[in-house]
Design a protein around this nucleic acid. Structure first.
Lengths: 196, 196
DNA sequence: TAGAATTTCTATAATTCTATAGATTTTATT
DNA sequence: AATAAAATCTATAGAATTATAGAAATTCTA
């Protein structure tokens, strides 16, 4: 057994994958446990071997969905790239995630609020940590004089994450578009604006 | 009778309002016709006097939600303001809509995809018309030399609408924030970028 | 290969939700 | 006030969905 992952872990991840695909397609409330089970080729009841509830499946998808984004921001903070390079790197990373793991990104963006507030703790934690990391990046850029000093950091981060998450709402519908070009233009707009 | 609106029309609009509030709060699938009826102080079954189905209620909310935005863009195209002024005006208008009609904006942004594709015609029509109007504005700005020539119009419009709709996801949770400051900073970022 | 552990299945209870039909109440009209 | 029209209510059929319990099948291990 060279595999690190146990049989169970592999199958569990397949279940999370299936949930991600179904939630991305129909939305949390629009999708049923039956849909997920069918995608896994098991019966509806068997799904409960992997998740204690439909909600737990959504939470698993969301946590998986933000994992790499957070890790990537952490790694970017270690390296000391320029602000412009950092922004471009984040955009490229987001685009490639959107390509490789579209379902997770979509579910995280659109469905995480379906988890009732009282059980949203772990996801809020991750997502506000993501915001904190971006704030650090922006603050450092201001200190270094790479970013306009008078811009409010909170609003800037919100605007930037807005740009990021908006991509997922249209990018996957345009299959012929060049992801490189999208990342380039978004970063140019964010960094240098649209005015001539 | 000085009123233009009939009794029925008033009550119908109250029903659309209630649906908007409930859908914004719980999402389309998360909300029930019972919730809407309770908000209107009628019984669940009575709701069907106003809507033939729950889906029809969502469609009504969405169409109402985009109405003023479209009308405002049309009026902006008539006036011949500069690109910068136009962008600022759109942001101000969006912020004020978000203040006065938050429920409609939220439902339009987050729930319109709950209408099955085969019945999404009228909403897609409005929403792609909105995009078309923005494309016209951007194209004119490029022709006048007010906007960078090499920016792809389609991507720019997507980025801009992404900025706009992202505001609704956080603005209403921050009650102490100054809407004027938000509009100013968003337009500065979009027009002139973030780099120092 | 026998027994243990894991995984999946069957069947169903319990609940929830949409939508309809016909009765009833309220409001408007003459 | 009598009648007509509009608005709401009651009661329920019918469908869908989550979650559970225990049986059956499969896979692993010694």
């Amino acid at each position: 057994m060279a595999d690190k992952k146990s049989k169970y872990d592999q199958r569990y991840m397949a279940a999370v994958d299936a949930a991600a695909a179904v939630f991305a397609d129909k939305g949390y409330h629009g999708a049923g446990t039956l849909d997920i089970a069918e995608k896994l080729n098991i019966k509806q009841g068997s799904l409960y071997y992997y998740f204690p509830s439909k909600e737990a499946a959504l939470e698993a998808v969301c946590l998986e969905g933000i994992k790499y984004g957070v890790a990537y921001l952490e790694s970017l903070l270690q390296e000391e790239r320029s602000f412009a390079e950092t922004i471009k790197a984040i955009l490229h990373h987001t685009l490639s995630s959107l390509h490789d793991r579209a379902d997770y990104m979509i579910v995280f963006d659109d469905e995480r609020q379906c988890i009732p507030v009282e059980r949203r703790g772990r996801i809020r934690e991750q997502s506000s940590y993501y915001h904190k990391l971006l704030e650090q990046i922006f603050r450092r850029a201001q200190q270094r004089g790479e970013m306009k000093r008078h811009l409010d950091i909170y609003i800037s981060v919100r605007a930037f994450t807005g740009l990021l998450s908006s991509i997922s709402s249209w990018y996957h519908t345009q299959q012929d578009i060049d992801s490189e070009a999208v990342a380039e233009q978004y970063s140019e707009m964010f960094l240098g604006g649209s005015c001539a």
